[in-house]
Amino acid sequence: MKVVGLFILLLLWTTIGWSQITHPKASPFTRIEQEVGLSKISLEYSRPAVRNRKVFGIQADGKPALVPYGRIWRVGANESTKITFDSDVKIEGNDLPKGTYALYIFPYENQWEIVFHKNTSHWGDGRDNYNPEEDALKVSVLPLKTLAFQENILIYFDELQHDSAQLIIHWASTKVQVSLSFDTTSTMDLEIQQKLQDNPSAQTYYEVARYYQEQGIRLDEALSYLEKALEKGGGTYYFYRVKSLVEADLGNYKDAIVTASKSLRLADAEKKDEFVRLNQKSIKLWKSKL
Results as ranks from 00 to 15, higher is better:
Arg31Val: 15
Tyr101Thr: 01
Val139Gly: 07
His117Leu: 00
Glu133Tyr: 08
Pro200Thr: 10
Lys262Met: 06
Lys2Phe: 15
Tyr45Gly: 00
Lys228Ala: 02
Leu226Val: 02
Phe106Met: 12
Gly216His: 08
Pro132Arg: 06
Tyr212Ile: 11
Leu66Met: 10
Lys2Leu: 15
Val75Cys: 01
Asp249Ser: 13
Thr30Lys: 14
Ile257Lys: 00
Gly124Ser: 02
Gln111Ser: 13
Phe116Ala: 01
Leu226Phe: 00
Tyr212Leu: 13
Val208Lys: 08
Val55Ala: 11
Pro200Phe: 08
Pro28Glu: 10
Tyr156Thr: 06
Gln194Asn: 09
Tyr212His: 14
Ile168Pro: 05
Leu266Thr: 03
Gln194Pro: 04
Ser164Gln: 09
Tyr225Lys: 02
Glu274Thr: 12
Val3Asp: 15
Ser46Thr: 07
Pro48Val: 03
Ser186Ile: 05
Lys82Trp: 00
Leu290Gln: 12
Trp171Ala: 07
Gly99Tyr: 03
Ile91Asn: 03
Val176Glu: 01
Ile283His: 02
Gln34Ser: 13
Gln20Arg: 15
Gly57His: 04
Val55Thr: 13
Lys289Val: 01
Glu221His: 08
Ala248Asn: 01
Tyr253Ala: 01
Ser39Asp: 13
Ser19Phe: 15
Ile21Thr: 15
Asp61Cys: 02
Ser19Trp: 15
Asn199His: 12
Ser261Leu: 02
Ser282Ala: 10
Ser244Cys: 04
Gly234Asn: 06
Ser27Phe: 05
Asp95Gln: 12
Asp273Ala: 13
Ile217Met: 04
Gln203Arg: 14
Thr100His: 00
Asp158Ala: 12
Ser201Asn: 05
Thr14Leu: 14
Val4Asn: 15
Glu214Met: 14
Val178Pro: 02
Asn131Gly: 05
Ala60Asp: 12
Glu247Ala: 05
Asp135Met: 00
Thr236Asn: 08
Leu223Gly: 08
Leu219Tyr: 07
Ile41Gly: 09
Lys287Glu: 04
Thr14Ala: 15
Asp135Pro: 00
Val36Ile: 14
Glu270Val: 09
Ile153Pro: 08
Thr187Lys: 11
Ile58Pro: 03
Gly70Leu: 05
Phe116Leu: 03
Phe275Gln: 01
Lys175Ser: 03
Ala222Asp: 01
Tyr206Phe: 13
Pro132Met: 04
Ala136Gly: 10
His117Trp: 00
Phe149Pro: 07
Ser224Cys: 10
Glu109Thr: 05
Lys272Glu: 10
Pro200Gly: 09
Ala148Tyr: 12
